[in-house]
Structure formats: structure tokens, C-alpha cells
Simulated assay, not measured.
Amino acid sequence: MGSALEAARARRSWSKVTDTAPTREQLLPLVAAAGRVADHSNLTPWRLIELRGEDRMALGAAIGAATGDGPSAKPLRAPLLIAVVSSPRPSDKVPEWEQEAVASGVAHVLSLLLDEAGWGVMWRTGAFVRAPEVARAHGLTRREKLLGWLYVGGRPPRDRDGFRAGVDPERMLGQMPAAG
């Protein structure tokens, strides 16, 4: 097992994946580990929905209904989609935006863990993510928000060269401005 630093440095998005995917049993320990993100008051303001097989076609129909373009084939680009849902809990201490950040953190850590386990992963969104038809297809409550899907599958054979360069840490890490 590598370090978190090595996993973060090696992470990349895989826009094309093969038809293999982790089983539910393989996913469960990764989800448990991803659930360890910072979570003020331990509210667990998130949930994940796994979509396989016919579920992906139902999502395609919902996207088509939302866009008016007919069923979308986009959900068929990977054998497993993991819907990331922000599911805020009532709290006087933790605002809803912070709870949504926790759900985003879970998605990112899960994508790192899947990548480290050898799976191809890409977090996909789109204008239809907040469409009522798509929310209904996922069984979301009025308070919940869909943050997108992790598209997961096998990695096609190819080298890791050519993906985007990292950020310039000197440019991105600033300091507090002087008082005055």
C-alpha cells in the first residue's frame, strides 16, 4: 500500500474504461474508508447510490427527459456509476454548504481509493445533474442534491503519460494579507 501523497500524485481521470468493475464487496471497504473525511459533528451528510446494468439505462432515460433529447447513452460509458448525493442533516452548528463539502470530500477520497486499487475513475457532472427528472430517478428527497457520478471501470491498456500537469504550489498557496 502506498502513501496518501503517492496516491494523490498518481491520480488521474479515466474518460474511457473497460467493461469490468469492482464488485459491491470490493466497494464496501473503500466506501468505509472514504467516509473518514472530516465531518463536523459527524453528521454523515452524504450517501452513495450504485448504478449497474439496467439502472444505467434508467438514468439515460431520465437524462433524456431532462434534456429533451431522448435517452442518453452517457451512463453506458462505464459498467458502474456511483451517484454522489449531498444529504444535509439538520444542524445549528454545521451549515448546509459545509455538509455539501463533506459529500464532495467523500467522492474525491473514494475516487483516489478506486484509482489506487487499479480502477479507472472519472467524476462526471453536467447541466442535468440538478434536473427534477434525474433527482426522481435517484429517489432524492427535496433537501438532497446530486453532485454527479463516479464512472468506474477497468483501465484500458495505456501509459500514464500525457495527462494534465499538476498545479504550481507556489502560486496556489498564499498567505493572509497584511492588516491595514
Rank of each mutant, 00 (worst) to 15 (best):
E6D: 15
L150H: 11
R143E: 15
P79S: 07
F163I: 05
T20H: 12
L173G: 04
K74I: 06
D69Q: 15
D168C: 02
R171Q: 03
T44S: 12
P95K: 15
R9H: 08
F163K: 06
I63N: 05
N42P: 01
P177A: 14
R12N: 04
A101G: 11
W119C: 08
D55A: 14
R158Y: 01
R143W: 00
K145T: 10
M122R: 09
I63M: 06
R171L: 05
E98P: 05
S111W: 10
R36V: 01
G139R: 02
P29D: 05
L112V: 09
T20Y: 03
L140H: 08
A107T: 13
V17H: 15
A21Y: 14
G139H: 06
G154W: 06
L140A: 04
A34Y: 00
V109D: 15
K145M: 05
V31K: 02
T67D: 02
G60C: 05
W123N: 02
G126V: 01
S104R: 09
R11M: 03
I63S: 02
V106E: 12
T18Q: 06
G105A: 10
W97H: 10
D69C: 03
L110I: 06
A33L: 08
G2T: 11
V17R: 12
L5T: 14
V94G: 11
R124G: 01
V134T: 03
E100S: 13
S104K: 04
S87V: 02
P157I: 03
G60V: 02
R52T: 14
W123M: 02
M122D: 07
G166K: 12
R77L: 11
E133Y: 00
E96L: 01
R47Y: 03
P79T: 00
P177S: 14
G53H: 07
L43G: 00
V109S: 14
S104Y: 14
S111C: 10
G166Y: 08
M176N: 13
L28N: 04
S104P: 02
R89H: 08
D161M: 10
P156M: 08
A165N: 06
V121Q: 07
L30P: 07
R24H: 08
L5E: 13
T141W: 00
L51T: 12
A8I: 04
S3E: 04
A34K: 00
A83Y: 06
P45N: 13
E98S: 06
R158E: 15
P156L: 11
P88Q: 05
H40T: 11
A107E: 14
W119K: 11
L51N: 12
S41F: 06
W97S: 08
P45R: 13
L27K: 12
H108L: 13
G53S: 09
V134I: 05
R155K: 15
A117E: 15
G64C: 01
R142G: 13
G70I: 05
S86I: 07
L51D: 12
V84H: 10
R158G: 13
M176L: 13
V84C: 05
L43F: 11
G60E: 03
A73E: 10
Q99V: 01
G105E: 11
R12Y: 04
R155T: 09
A165M: 04
A4W: 13
L59E: 09
W119G: 11
E25T: 04
L28T: 11
W123D: 04
L113H: 09
S15Y: 14
L110V: 08
G70Y: 09
P79W: 10
P79Y: 07
V17F: 14
G70S: 07
G64S: 05
W46L: 04
A107N: 13
Q99W: 01
G120Y: 12
Y151K: 01
